[in-house]
Write a protein that binds this DNA or RNA. Structure first.
Length: 179
DNA sequence: ACCCCGATCGTA
DNA sequence: ACGATCGGGGTT
């Protein structure tokens, strides 16, 4: 398996506005413990202006990493059984994050992990993987290998407020089989 | 200490 | 469209 270190995304990529970073992450490759996962679906969650964001009501122990500088992982536990992976964006004190909702394996594109919970379960991502600096970590980072995926924009999934915001970015022409 | 609900998933 | 599921975040 090729080492993607030389394609690693640097801090400045994550310091842009979350609404810019979320679609830009499509086609990028998550390197996580020897896995290489191409991102197919993301959602943008910003801070105080976004009622669907975990950061909307201010800093808590769970979401505090969202208030830090961009380029860190934010993993949270949901529905008593699932984990969801985010990447924090923007400068400190400007809380925002991108939810990763789908990936496929770079070396086995037949299998599409669609859905944030399924994806984390399949990849083995849990609360021990939150607050990791993915700009410096040896085993957890994001790489740009030049894949570009056409996408469309829709409302976000599973939220009760903020539905009017079009902040879900889904690649078209995905592998058909979901796993 | 404890209550309540969710950035989901699978089946119908 | 809806019910299962339950840990832990948020508040007391």
């Amino acid at each position: 398996m090729k080492n993607l270190e030389k394609y690693r995304l640097k801090r400045d990529f994550f310091l842009n506005d979350v609404i810019e970073v979320a679609p830009a992450l499509l086609g990028k490759v998550i390197v996580f413990k020897n896995q290489q996962l191409v991102i197919t679906e993301t959602e943008a969650y910003s801070g105080y202006d976004d009622p669907a964001s975990h950061a909307f009501r201010g800093k808590t122990p769970r979401n505090e990493i969202m208030f830090g500088i961009g380029g860190f992982s934010y993993v949270y536990f949901i529905y008593g059984m699932y984990h969801c992976l985010n990447f924090v964006t923007g400068p400190a004190e400007q809380p925002s994050a991108v939810l990763i909702r789908g990936t496929y394996n770079l070396h086995d594109p037949s299998c599409h992990w669609n859905g944030p919970g399924k994806m984390c379960r399949a990849a083995g991502i849990d609360l021990t993987h939150t607050k990791i600096d993915i700009v410096t970590s040896e085993w957890f980072y994001v790489a740009d290998t030049g894949i570009t995926l056409p996408f469309h924009i829709t409302p976000r999934v599973g939220i009760s407020r903020g539905q009017e915001m079009l902040r879900r970015f889904v690649a078209t022409q995905l592998p058909k089989k979901s796993c």
